[in-house]
Design a protein around this nucleic acid. Structure first.
Lengths: 76, 76
DNA sequence: AGATATTTTTCCCTTACGGTAAAATTGTGT
DNA sequence: ACACAATTTTACCGTAAGGGAAAAATATCT
């Protein structure tokens, strides 16, 4: 598998959704439990993992941080 | 000065907002013109640069990409 | 089949977004 | 400092959509 140390360019919501699902599976956590951990609804987790583009920024950030994914910005 | 090639950890909406404002100033563009370029309202740009946390993810992504900021994700 | 997990749907409330215009802030020149 | 211009922020409103909860519909296992 791709090691967790590699950088992934985020082009859209789908990119981050896939990473989150993969991480969650690693931890062997259900969407429901993970939603509880993140203080969001289960529907949000489902939509996030499926790449819904209009989710709120801070909620996405909260989930990524809790599951162990850091976001970085880099100017071109 | 910190070169634009450096990676900045995004902990919240404020972090990305500051970068966007800095970039926009470099280009010497008004919020109004930049909003037109990004196909978003001028109010969105203002709120984004000031770190409003609940903005929609894809809109934030669209703006960052148009102004020359790439987002990366990295597992811990 | 049965149990578990995930996705989707429905109902309801809240809120983001854009447009416009006014208020506030920042910047510039004299 | 002062006046003036330019830019940014805020307020109001209508529309559209997000989000939570829970149930229903699919999917995925053993």
């Amino acid at each position: 598998m791709t090691p967790s140390s590699e950088m992934t360019l985020i082009k859209n919501a789908t990119d981050i959704g896939k990473m989150i699902r993969a991480k969650r599976k690693e931890i062997e956590m259900t969407q429901a439990d993970f939603a509880g951990l993140c203080n969001v609804g289960i529907r949000f987790i489902s939509e996030l993992e499926n790449g819904k583009p209009t989710l709120e920024f801070d909620r996405v950030l909260r989930v990524t941080q809790l599951i162990g994914i850091d976001l970085f910005a880099k100017g071109r």
